[in-house]
Design a protein around this nucleic acid. Sequence first.
DNA 1: AAAACGTGCAACCGCCAAATG
DNA 2: TCATTTGGCGGTTGCACGTTT
Length: 324
Amino acid sequence: MGRAPCCDKANVKKGPWSPEEDSKLKEYIEKYGTGGNWIALPQKAGLKRCGKSCRLRWLNYLRPNIKHGEFTDEEDRIICSLFASIGSRWSIIAAQLPGRTDNDIKNYWNTKLKKKLMAMTAQSQRKPPPFPSSHHTPPVSSQSLSSLYKDCSTSYCGTPNRSFTAFEPMSSVQSDLLNNSNTTNFATNSSLIHTPQSLVSHMQYYPVKENFLMFGSEPSCSSSDGSCSQISYGREIKQEDMSFQGFGASTGYEDNHKFMLDYGTNNGGANVNQWTEKPSGYYGECSLDYDLEDVKRLISSSSTNNCCNNNNNNNNNNQTASVI
DNA sequence: AAAACGTGCAACCGCCAAATG
DNA sequence: TCATTTGGCGGTTGCACGTTT
């Protein structure tokens, strides 16, 4: 049996939203909220729209604190850094840019930033780098990425028994993670970030589970659909896992510890991106040293490096990384 | 002035996974 | 356990508008 449509397509309006529709939707949501049911909302609000359409309209355009307009250099850097790290996970990237929606960022990347970087690369190399048609796979070879990929363990630990970071490959920690009672949960209950193939082989298994190394997001979501992406890298933290430094073992690890990419400069004035916990406390940091130059190098190197450095036996053509 | 072309962005589509009954 | 519903996400499309020829 096929899947039922989310709405009666024959009786829903499509296309651009009129100011009247906008105000209806806005007024309704401000008055009653979404009620946790987008499908039923348009009828209640007197709109002849698909629930999904209402949801998108609200989250991408109508909800408060949406930021429109030019992206700053700082935002460029963050986007590039995260794209180089996790690929086209726009909702995650958006979570680091308050007020920006994933749709905005996606559009910005596809229409401007990518071209900008390509132009810069072409200029430096005098040849245009090939760029995959699919945005999902960043043009990053595992080898080149490894040159950028920072093991942040030193940020966490002086003499770590074990440490890993948001950008540490699971391959180096997965045995620890998997060899415990939580293995099943980890393997079956956690979603896995769709990991670009070029990254899978070398560095990334990024299991998603709550309460661990979250990409934080404000209650007002920056995802285009306000999904409040809270992506965590690794399985759920247990008390015994806090034996390594950098995670505040003594205080335990509580829910809702979220990490945000904190862009700024270090004492030397150099630009750094740091993973900082929010809203309170501090459990460590991870410097993301990607900048535009790095991304340019990533792009350019993709034309010369074979991106299929396959150290991973599970490597296949599926873009979705999987463990086990 | 008008057609052709390029660009940016809002919106839609379809897939996936979680939730629910 | 399975079918169905719903929310979430990323890719793609189509249109409006600006620029070029």
